[in-house]
Design a protein around this nucleic acid. Sequence first.
DNA 1: GTGAAAGCGCTAACAC
DNA 2: GTGTTAGCGCTTTCAC
Lengths: 335, 335
Amino acid sequence: MKVTISDVARLAGVSTATVSHTINNTRYVSGDTKEKVYQAIRQLGYTPDASARSFRTGKKRTIGFIVPDISNKFFGTIIESAENVLSAEGYHLIIANTKENMDREETNLRLLTAGLVDGLLVASTMEDFARLDGLIPAGFPVVLVDRTFDSQKYSSVSVSNFQPIYRSVCRLAAQGARRIGVVGGLPRLSTTKERIAAYRAAMKDCGLPLDENLILYGDSMENSAPPCLDRLLERGCDAILVCQGLMASVTIAYLRGKGIQPRRDLELVSFVDYDTHAYEFYYDQVDRIVQPVVELGKIAGEQILLRVEKPDAPVAERVLTSAYRPWGEGEAGQE
Amino acid sequence: MKVTISDVARLAGVSTATVSHTINNTRYVSGDTKEKVYQAIRQLGYTPDASARSFRTGKKRTIGFIVPDISNKFFGTIIESAENVLSAEGYHLIIANTKENMDREETNLRLLTAGLVDGLLVASTMEDFARLDGLIPAGFPVVLVDRTFDSQKYSSVSVSNFQPIYRSVCRLAAQGARRIGVVGGLPRLSTTKERIAAYRAAMKDCGLPLDENLILYGDSMENSAPPCLDRLLERGCDAILVCQGLMASVTIAYLRGKGIQPRRDLELVSFVDYDTHAYEFYYDQVDRIVQPVVELGKIAGEQILLRVEKPDAPVAERVLTSAYRPWGEGEAGQE
DNA sequence: GTGAAAGCGCTAACAC
DNA sequence: GTGTTAGCGCTTTCAC
């Protein structure tokens, strides 16, 4: 039924060791013997069994990726980019979707670390680091992606949006905005915290009053922007900053639906998004903070491979920065 | 170092068989013994090794999904939905991204069928069925997703858009459109072929002249819509039908950037998209053909599980249908 | 109600 | 330059 390495060895008239070494280029085999082996392999249609192999060697050539939301293009792009570098090295990618649910993340961490993957990429939705950390076996290769924690225990790749958000708020203030509202994602995430902190700092530094009612949070998941926008409008904002990608993506359409146009009815709307083409056509209407998603995924892939192959390499914390694209600047002449 | 089943057996004072049976509920074990076993497991922090297990049993509890473009939300949502049903049954999902490249699909098919997964979900980018078929070992569980072939060899889940596209063209014609342009995805895909066929049939039946210059194809991948739209506008279209999701997604923004507004400058624009909230705010501007993506992924997951668990079950070809949402009808009162 | 032990397909000492 | 063989951790048959 199933063709095994012994079948090949028998037909080729050599030992299983020779077959194995031929396939894996793991010791010298004479051209003659090689030929016989390959011949037998072809004749029998032999394919080495991946699970026997990984059982034997302890290497799965598989990386797990725990994501909060696969259907979010932000993560879709990171996955794509990471998969690129992994597949180039012969690795596969297992996806687990937590839907921003900590219990689901816990289950997946348990499952994936139990001999299923060689290493783990985690865009965690956990509130505190201890819970995450407690679920990871000692020495297991992990790279935190996009969302980080204060501890420096694991390697991480993330994007800092502090400066662009700060600048954006300053620019809004300079243009006369007084009541700048802000919409963030899930409050527990490092990304959200940093963004809101940047907003607070800028408001303070620009001498604008800080009104807690103008700081609203969504769930980072579905398009929870509309209710937040409604409330900010009710509360008399003259400018709005939407600093979560998924929520930003419906904002223009939603405001349009209400007959509100950026830079006419509202001082300015500013976005944190990523390098998708979909918003490019709005470059003359909104400030955009463009996150380097592709780079994020690429580095995530590289880092986890590094940790898997050299577990003793020092922990690396990579922080990328977003591009700040105020409306009216750049891009116009391109296309 | 690593805790094995024998360590547990030894500590509990039983045989490995008993430990195994206790864990797997696979034969009667007395309450007393059970207790000792669980006690030992807890004490040692034992986790059964997944790869030893799958090597032994031949079951991996893993399904592969070959996708043309993970970063496309259409597939992201299908993946999410399939992953839901799979993880509920204790299965994992391995993702492979082909970027609409047939050679990459070939490589991935070889890799994944070599003992890595129990079954395969494939949204194929292959031109002809024979090439795909030749890469799949006899009896290997496969379900074709979204894109199908004439052969009935494998189970499949897809969406038919013939009727809604046909209706949409008729409606455009009835409203006075004469030169209706159409933008499709990759010409080799079953989905594209069906859509263009529906367009042709409707044009003919409505008595409109068929101008081959008004049928344009993109690459189903990135936002290749703008050049197609430009050409259709040059060629004097009074209505445009964009029938590929990714391409549809930039259309409104792109046209707006050019100062063109649906239903004012252009008779009508009609879309094939899916049930995302992002377009909902445009319901009063365009006809939409909404594909049941979540359902698609769900059925894909169910079908592959069925084939994996009952390989002899008859091949099933499920065809879902899209909802047709002409502008101005429905949805207005919701929200 | 439980144990002993064979063996899944492969890799990698070790031997010559 | 190649062969012999132990054994990875688990499940499962056969035995009692």
